[in-house]
Nucleic acid binder design. Structure first.
Lengths: 210, 210, 210, 210
DNA sequence: CATGAATGAGGATTCATTCAT
DNA sequence: CATGAATGAATCCTCATTCAT
């Protein structure tokens, strides 16, 4: 808010700012061209820094790549955390989180490429990120299960359920990005998702809710 | 030493054989080391051919990469086609297909890496492959829907349903690969999957089936 | 002598010729600028070849550096071999070899830098080369010793003698290079060397020869 | 904690101390890793100073490198000076100097690498150092010659003799370093050296001494 | 004077692609 | 058609040096 803080940056703050600039630049370059084409040249150029500066902050290119998803993923999860508070049951939590994610993804369009290519370009980071997500999901599912919200499943099945739901969600997210223009159609996708996780394929809602 | 039919290869057949050898070699190298490390050197070496021969069959490396998933994916789909015949409803078709896939994946361990890295390394091929799969899925779902097997959903929702189910299935497949050793645990994963798509999260099976 | 053999170079001969060109180019660049400044860029440029061609012949820059002294050293030793034949005693062998070396060094001015910097830049090659030289020296000394030409020394001392003589010779060589212009002064250096190894410091020639 | 004289350092003394620390650090780093790997980073780190401080004392890295051998060589020569006093003839001076050097080299193990790599990394310093050594040698030889100790040589030959003897001595030194463990074998090397410079190759000691 | 963050020139190496044989 | 030698653009990384604090 205070517009004129710029000259107040101390030495250490500038270092930190450069590091952040490099991370943000990397994230954007990867979003546009993929990990493979994200040369250090391109990253430092976009950050407005000299090539050599990169190596004052990261030992290797891979070190940075392995950092991006954890850092940016944590920012995302923090953001989603807030959105979910106050939801009554698991499905509501899930659908609210989805909406919050959509808003966030609109501002951070590089995120999907960063995430998906990490599977190949930064596998350990990818696993860590998925595990972070799964962890929250798992806890959320467990709470619901303990309240009796998941009558069809045994406790031991929650683990598998976690990953099945994450997989679907990932698809819905991808669709969201693909159809970023039309808010209508994405609403339909969410609704179909809601029905599938609520009632499954076979049961007619009316029968089940009866 | 055994002459075994070698001289029977006509000129054109030899060309075809070399092309196939390159495709198979590529698929194996990628399975072991990923697209990024699948240099043309390595591919031609494994195919037992000269480096330059590659360019007799493919204009660029990317052209081959873009070919692999469609070619190998089609082989897979042919294989699965047969397994599904005779199934009575959608869920049975799906579960039978899964089993058939597991058998096939055991013999073609390179497939998952080929598939997943294609998302990054050969995006157009990836999309085409997903589209091929979706096409069959969609038709299968439509048939079921027409028979009234999916009472909760409208016709327009089948498209979304297709991708949601593919996403989950992909996860189950990945789990299968990860746990290649233990057949037990994978059966549990399938069972959870079956319940989720059959009844959803909320409904207790007994209630629904009643 | 036959001026028009050039087009007769077979495929394999051209490869060999390129390899030789790289070695010769390296040797010259090192002679002029030292190992440290002998970048692959410079070497391939002087050889009239593309940068990448280097790596078809040598795995790394160090591999080439480790090759140079052995290769060129062997050429030198072959050259000296011939010059020594027919000499009667050790000292005559030594002095004749020196002259032959001087003639060779005039045509191969890069040799000294190649040799001396190898101590730092290619230590293993350096050791091998010194050992090659020592080997011949040692044998030559032993033959003389067996003929009673070295009355002051026991057999066990020949090893040390070998290296002491090599050290001095190296200096005389270095002087030769430094004074490449004047043939007179180098003759004086040789003469002083001859007297030192013949009579030592203390003995007057006349007394000893009496 | 112990205040030991630290506060006594004046401004100028502190500057001097830093400069000395850099020189000593450089000498040690070079002794361990060679000139080529003696980055300014490493040198300043070992000196316990900031990287930039280097440039308060030396204009360039090369300037420091060119300083080291002269500085440390002078320290060595001062040390040897004392050892030689009282020797009666040239050969005794020489052998006493050798022993003194061995003792010094044991405490300053970095010296040989500093010296030998200087030939490549700091050629002008190398020449200056050799010249310093030669200067003392030359004077020593001249004194002996004037006393008639070198009957076989004319005055003009002393120059060459100087360098021949330095060369051999250098070899004996190198051997000393290589065999740092065994005092016996080094004594044998010295003895062979003594005989060579005393009697030459041809003369039997008894005959000559008769 | 001391510091260390920033810089970018320079160098080794890889690999898709071309082309003469 | 098959081959593999030659090519050079592109990339990562190092490190001496500069300069603002």
């Amino acid at each position: 808010m205070q517009a004129t803080r710029r000259p107040k940056l101390s030495r250490a703050e500038k270092v930190e700012a450069n590091r952040d600039a490099l991370i943000q630049a990397a994230v954007e370059v990867i979003g546009e061209e993929g990990y493979f084409n994200a040369s250090i040249q391109k990253i430092t150029q976009r950050a407005g820094l000299g090539l050599g500066t990169f190596y004052r902050h990261f030992e290797t290119q891979q070190e940075l790549f392995d950092l991006l998803l954890p850092v940016k993923g944590a920012e995302l999860l923090d953001h989603l955390q807030k959105a979910a508070t106050g939801a009554s049951d698991f499905i509501e939590v899930e659908l609210r989180g989805m909406e919050a994610f959509f808003r966030w993804a609109r501002e951070n369009p590089w995120f999907f490429r960063l995430l998906h290519e990490a599977h190949v370009a930064a596998p350990s980071a990818y696993k860590r990120h998925i595990e972070n997500i799964a962890e929250r999901f798992r806890r959320s599912l467990l709470r619901s299960w303990e309240k009796g919200e998941l009558p069809a499943f045994e406790k031991a099945e929650l683990e598998t359920l976690t990953y099945l739901l994450i997989s679907m969600r990932d698809y819905v997210y991808a669709e969201y990005v693909a159809r970023a223009d039309s808010d209508d159609s994405i609403a339909d996708v969410i609704e179909t998702y809601r029905k599938l996780i609520t009632f499954g394929l076979r049961t007619s809602p009316t029968a089940a809710e009866a």
